[in-house]
Amino acid sequence: MTADAVPPTQMIVDPRFLQVADRFFRMFRTRQQGGGALAAYLYGEPVLDIWAGWATRDRRWAHDTVALSFSTGKGVASTVLHRLAERGLVKYDDPVAAYWPEFGAAGKEAITIRELMSHRAGLHRVRGLMPGPLDLLDSDAVAKALAAAPPDRRRLSGPGYHAVTYGNLVAEIACRVTGRTFPELVEQELAGPLGLREFWFRVPQNERRRLAPVFPRVNPLPSSWSATARVMSRLPGVRGIAEAGMAEGFDELMRSPSAHDAVMPGWNGVFSARALARMYGALANGGTLDGVRLLKEDTLDQVLEVQTRRRDYVLGIRPNWRLGYHPGWVALREQPLRSIGHYGFGGSGAFADLETGLSIAFVTNRLGSNLTTTIADARFPRLGGDAVSIARRAA
């Protein structure tokens, strides 16, 4: 069964994946739980495409609802750059400055694309990068500021998660080597070949009716965002999180409609679960889906290689970064080691497990479940764990 064989208004539940569907539907029983969508492919065939809950307090989640998915977009942006690398437009071990000369300022002349894609460029700081929060929406100004910024010295001892800046860096390289805008590249490299349009970093005005606004307000502590950020920026152990993700006013910016006017692939991607599962479905299936080759198998072999096993000085863990992705973290003792994907703040995420041929994607407007915070959310790891277990039995 191909995606085209089922009307987009009709849900898909392969009987083998009923356990996953049951868990998903239990997550969205009340308006307080918001809504979401879940989609999965197994060896190139759709096995789940379901949705539930509320897009707003008075509108149910529908087959075409989309949601802001934060860092989930990093995997999408990375896939675009890998497509360009296959055509020889960029090489992973070349300096970034070979394609973006201004980037070589302030001691960054030797930093490579490989290092940048594994969060070792030392440009994680978004706090203080721009004069005000709205300035973060000016991608040209952000690129100019990043090019002029000195790298953090901690990059020499380990990665530091570029929570917001990663997407701007990747997008600038892609635009420099092609002469096209990043939305044009996403359309050309992903949306067009995959036959789905919901890969948006700048949401078209005529599609914004489909958006499910995220909630609740974003703040890891009871105090204001500004006060919390100031305190965290001074505390060892969490200082990096404040530097990388807590720019002044960023909590309001991520809830503002103006966020959808900009191109910031590190955090402002808007997707459907169906589109994400389809992209990762190609990667999980040896790089192809429905006769379309997204990436070559030797590219996938390179992408799967762990680039650094060192502790990330922003996150405080060892993410084992791949080239633009992390592994699919799931609620299982035996993790899917041959997996690549990216999770987003508040719960959304997607990954491909090349061992089982499985891809799975989850989007939601509810930042964190009722029992967790907006930062540490276990919904997708549990859904992913169930799905990986089933795929292993099906293999």
Results as ranks from 00 to 15, higher is better:
Phe351Glu: 07
His63Tyr: 15
Gly179Tyr: 05
Ala98Gly: 09
Gly281Trp: 02
Ala282Phe: 09
Arg210Phe: 00
Pro257Tyr: 13
Gln302Met: 09
Gly240Gln: 11
Ala395Asp: 12
Val218His: 05
Arg293Tyr: 04
Val330Tyr: 01
His162Ser: 07
Arg155Met: 14
Gln19Phe: 02
Tyr41Ile: 03
Gly341Ser: 10
Pro159Val: 03
Pro257Thr: 06
Arg57Glu: 07
Thr165Ile: 05
Glu86Tyr: 14
Trp267Leu: 08
Leu169Cys: 12
Arg278Met: 03
Ser78Arg: 13
Ser223Pro: 03
Leu315Glu: 01
Gln19Gly: 08
Glu198Trp: 03
Glu198Phe: 03
Arg57Gln: 11
Ala98Met: 11
Gln10Val: 15
Ile113Glu: 04
Arg180Ser: 12
Trp51Thr: 05
Leu383Pro: 04
Met279Leu: 15
Trp61Tyr: 06
Tyr166Asn: 00
Leu235Pro: 08
Ala67Pro: 01
Asp93Thr: 15
Gly104Asn: 13
Ser139Thr: 10
Arg16Asp: 15
Arg318Cys: 12
Ala163Ile: 01
Gln205His: 13
Met279Arg: 01
Arg83Thr: 11
Thr112Met: 15
Ser118Thr: 04
Asp93Ala: 12
Gly341Phe: 11
Gly316Pro: 05
Val363Trp: 02
Pro151Val: 04
Asn370Tyr: 05
Ser369Met: 07
Val90Ala: 01
Gly281Val: 04
Arg309Tyr: 11
Pro7Trp: 07
Leu315Cys: 04
Arg333Pro: 04
Arg382Thr: 13
Gln188Leu: 14
Gly122Leu: 03
Val186Arg: 06
Gly35Met: 04
Gly104Trp: 10
Gln307His: 06
Leu276Met: 12
Arg338Cys: 10
Asp290Ser: 14
Ala149Asn: 08
Ala67Ser: 11
Gly104Gln: 11
Phe351Thr: 08
Pro336Trp: 08
Leu68Cys: 09
Thr112Ile: 11
